[in-house]
């Protein structure tokens, strides 16, 4: 494993009476693409701003390469940021925007030229040097902002919802481009977003935050398949979250019957939350199902249908390409590995 480049130890940040970030511990490894994910106001941007040096933590330490950087101003950190609304310098053209950091570092003219050329190539804006930044489209401005940050060859690049203002198609394209760039330049990316799909697509590691507290840290697959609590299960993708009781290892009861599952380590008869993803439930004949129910609504979603089935004291959401009309009696089946048991929490 590569070494830890940034560490946050017991970091807390308060604004007046509001605790934006509450005693978080997190480390980020070199060359990692890590995403801070959560709803607005969860503290993800505050965390990013503390790493960038725009906010100072009230408690705890931030380490960069093992050195405490709590009170190091942004202009002395080997970190660059891509801001939410790009924050380009409207009085300068594309070339001068990208050159800004290099001029301050007094990089020689020919080297500066070379590095800017390479950046413009990377972000596919060759020939845009003398264009005024106001005359660029949102996606182009975004790429200038990325080039302006990357040209300084920082050890860490912070990205604060950089794709938020783009339309869906462009956003998907830029996601792929950013991932490729990160692999090509070998820089640690710390990415902030509220879009769970974006986080799952792009990241090596996802940090799910809520109310200033880290809910779960893990790979996208872990976060999706093994959510640690109700919040994560609910926030990442669609979920059926059913209250149940864990009788013993590998045996859980919900919707009025017992199911085999792969989870263990709970106390006997411990109340738990059970997660079953809508795409993991199959619809069958009523007598072949583990749970019997009746279809209450059907919505066509393009790739699949989204059906609500009432049965076993719960309204299950099912995503399937097989449509059953409203009012039909159906059976629901799923495999033991589709059942995920979580501790009952907040």
């Amino acid at each position: 494993m590569s070494k830890k480049i940034i560490e946050l130890n017991n970091v807390t940040k308060r604004y007046n009476d509001v605790t934006a970030v509450d005693n978080i511990n997190l480390y980020i490894r070199e060359n990692e693409f890590i995403t801070l994910l959560g709803p607005s106001g969860c503290g993800k941007t505050t965390t990013l701003r503390m790493i960038g040096g725009f906010e100072e933590p009230d408690e705890g330490d931030i380490l960069f390469d093992g050195v405490r950087i709590n009170d190091v101003p942004p202009y002395k950190r080997n970190i660059n940021t891509v801001f939410q609304r790009y924050a380009l310098f409207t009085h300068l053209n594309v070339y001068e925007n990208i050159a800004f950091g290099l001029r301050i570092k007094k990089v020689p003219k020919d080297e500066m030229d070379r590095r800017i050329k390479r950046m413009l190539k990377l972000v596919e804006l060759e020939g845009f040097e003398t264009r005024h930044v106001d005359s660029l489209s949102g996606g182009q401005q975004q790429r200038v902002a990325i080039a302006r940050a990357l040209v300084n060859e920082p050890k860490v690049l912070l990205l604060d919802e950089p794709l938020g203002a783009l339309d869906l198609k462009l956003r998907k394209e830029m996601q792929i481009e950013l991932m490729n760039m990160q692999k090509n330049v070998g820089i640690t990316f710390i990415y902030v977003t509220h879009d769970q799909e974006e986080a799952l697509t792009m990241s090596d590691t996802v940090v799910v935050m809520n109310k200033g507290i880290i809910q779960q840290v893990g790979t996208p697959v872990d976060i999706y398949n093994e959510p640690e609590n109700r919040f994560v299960a609910d926030f990442i993708g669609e979920s059926n979250i059913i209250e149940g009781i864990m009788h013993e290892d590998y045996l859980v009861e919900f919707s009025g019957r017992k199911f085999k599952c792969l989870d263990k380590g709970f106390q006997q008869n411990e109340p738990v939350d059970v997660v079953i993803r809508p795409e993991d439930i199959d619809i069958t004949e009523p007598d072949k199902g583990l749970i019997q129910g009746v279809v209450t609504s059907v919505v066509f979603k393009g790739v699949h249908y989204e059906m609500m089935v009432e049965g076993g004291g719960f309204e299950y959401m099912i995503q399937s390409t097989d449509m059953q009309p409203v009012g039909v009696n159906v059976g629901l089946t799923f495999e033991p590995e589709d059942i995920h048991v979580m501790k009952r929490g907040s």
């Binding site: 202009y75 924050a87 800004f100 300084n152």
Partner: peptide
């Protein structure tokens, strides 16, 4: 002037004086 533009200048290595003369004043 968008605060983030000033932060961007500082992020790119400009101290307060530089930020003023190279970003705030021209704007």
């Amino acid at each position: 002037i968008d605060r983030s533009v000033i932060e961007a200048a500082m992020d790119l290595g400009a101290n307060k004086i530089r930020t003023f003369f190279n970003v705030i004043f021209p704007l």
